[in-house]
Structure formats: C-alpha cells, structure tokens
Amino acid sequence: MTSLTGIFSRKELKNEGKVFEPKPYSNPYVVGFGLGLVLLSAFLIMGRGLGASGAVSTVVAVGMEKIAPEHAAKNNFYKEYLGDGTTNPLKDWLLFEVIGVVVGGFISGSLAHRIKRTTEKGPNVSVRTRLIYAFVGGSIMGFGAKLARGCTSGLALTGGSLLSLGGWAFMLSVFGGGYAVAYFIRRQWL
C-alpha cells in the first residue's frame, strides 16, 4: 500500500526482515544540559523545582484516607498531603509532573527503539532475585526519601542547583550510602 506522504511505504521497507536495534544512549553532557534546561524552566515558570517521591506520598495518603479515614486523619504525615479538605489532594503539581515523566520516558524510548519487556540485571543473578532486590531497594528508598523530605530529583537536583545546604548534604550522603554498600551487592550487577 502506498500513501501520499510516503511514510507508510518507508515503514514497510524497514520492517522487511529487519530487527530494530535499540540506539545507544545519548552523550551524557548533552543530556545533562537538556535536563538542566528543563529544571531551569521549572524554576523560571513555576518558581519551584522537579520532584518524584512526593507524588507517591500523595497517592499513599489518598489511598489511606479511602481505606481508613479516621486512621489517616490522626497522622500528621498523611495530613500534610491530604490538605485541609477544601482542595482535591490529587490535583497535585508533582503528581501531574510524574505522569508527564512516564509519558516523556515512553516517547524517548519509542523513538530510540528502547521499549522492551525485560528485567535489567547483572549476568549472575536470576530474574526472581533481581525483582526481590528491586522491591527491597524501593522500600528502603521510599522510607529514606520521606525521612529526608525528598529524593534525587527534589532534593539533590533541585536543592543542588539552588545551592541549598540540605540538598548538598543529602546528595553527598546518597553517594556515601551507595558506595558504602556497593561491594556487598556486587553479585547483582557485575
């Protein structure tokens, strides 16, 4: 089938016996510059930086309120994310930003043929072990991010470029904690 634009025919040609190879990742300095511009535009337009873990907190707090409203109302942590009841807690800046992150990641991955159902791991561990580590690591991270009031995006990137003392102390601690235990986890990655 031919099309007016020629797009279909070109696609058909490419598909003939050809597997799309995932493209290599971009130059880190170029990516960093682009990421810096995204962060800068958040500062200039919104007067705030980026984030990620806050969106999870909102979802957890709203979930707790649905399941156990009295229990959630007594807890200052959940209350912080639920607000005073005059606004919908799900109309949250970070939550909308994170939905954008999911979409943006998918667009970039699609363009570079990097969307794939797989599990990323080192050659010496099973998928099952890797997934257990992923869950445990995620839990530890969720807890740590809440204790620190932010994660790599909200505190290290955002706080770092705003020269916040807490942001820099946090960033150095993240690298410190990571390097301190990396040796013991090496089987998973190397």
Binding site: F143, K146, A148, F170, M171, G177, G178
Partner: peptide, 10 residues
C-alpha cells in the same frame, strides 16, 4: 535519609 536512600539505590 540520604544514606538510607543511597543504600536503597544500590
């Protein structure tokens, strides 16, 4: 929190 998060990262 940063130390805990770093451990979770690895």
């Amino acid at each position: 929190g940063g130390l805990i998060l770093g451990i979770g990262f690895v």
